[in-house]
Simulated assay, not measured.
Amino acid sequence: MATAASQVILHPLVSQGLKFGSTTLGRDKTYRAVQYFARFFAWYLLNKGDKLDAARWNALKSHLGTARKLLRLGKPIEHLQSALRTSLASGPAAEQILAIGRQIAYFGYLSYDAVIWANAIKFINLDPETAKRVSKTSSRFWLAGILFSLVNGVIKTARLASEAKRLQPGKSWGEKDVAEETQRETRLNAVKAAQVAARRQFTIDILDVWLPATGVGLTNLNEGTLGIFGLITSILGMQAQWKAVNGK
């Protein structure tokens, strides 16, 4: 019995899960996945007429949203640092400007998000109209950040496709020695990995953009659709973080 229990508790997958959960980003992505599933499921139950269970899932969604705001209290400064580092780095000018714009927009979004959290826990007291304006401003910054990221993704994808084509073996390379061929293959592999990451981020952005767009009133998607979109992007984010933490 003890052996069976140890095999379960000490299983590598359990250890990897604990390692993933020990990171703030890992916990945030997990909470986000549950939050958006709850958003979808509450909508589903409400449409079935099950108001009591829908209220329970809505409460879970709201409390997880508040908890995630607490986890993100230090994030605005991280985005400012990222903007500064990007401005000091070398790279294509258009991509650099768009990346800086994204980071600054997320700084604004998460700064207003902190005010929303403080009001939600009654640390400060905003009147309903002010709270509504703060929430809408937060969504506008969030939307701007995603739009910057989407445009950056299109430009970056085109650049990487062009570079990958140039790096393909062919006549343009001619006769090269072993060292140069190895260098070409290494660079090509790096470009292919960057293409995968760019496609993943573009997928996340194209789904997430509907969340703030609905928040500012530009679209009118129902709660179920937004819940599914958020759940999908949360799972994609969890996969990326799992790979970053566990290396697989």
Rank of each mutant, 00 (worst) to 15 (best):
P169D: 02
D177G: 10
K171Y: 14
P169M: 02
G170R: 01
A193P: 07
G174L: 06
T182P: 01
R184T: 08
Q168A: 12
V178C: 06
R199G: 11
T186F: 00
A179N: 09
P169G: 00
P169H: 03
L188Y: 04
Q168Y: 12
T186R: 01
Q201K: 12
A179P: 07
L167M: 14
N189G: 11
A179L: 05
T182I: 08
Q183D: 12
A193T: 14
N189E: 15
A197Q: 12
L188R: 07
K192W: 07
R184C: 08
V191K: 00
Q168C: 15
Q168I: 15
E185L: 10
E185H: 08
A190P: 05
A197N: 09
E181R: 13
V178S: 11
G170Q: 02
A197I: 08
V196P: 00
T182N: 14
Q195Y: 06
E175A: 06
T182S: 14
Q201H: 03
R200I: 13
Q195E: 09
D177F: 04
Q183L: 14
L167W: 12
N189P: 09
E185P: 04
W173S: 03
V191W: 00
T182M: 09
V178I: 13
V178L: 14
E181W: 10
D177N: 14
A190S: 13
A179R: 07
V196D: 05
L167D: 08
A194G: 02
V191D: 04
D177R: 05
L188W: 02
K192V: 10
V196F: 05
L188Q: 04
A194C: 01
V178M: 13
L188P: 04
F202M: 14
A194F: 01
L167G: 07
A194L: 07
G170S: 05
K176C: 01
V178Y: 05
A179M: 07
V196S: 01
E180F: 13
W173R: 03
G170T: 01
T182K: 11
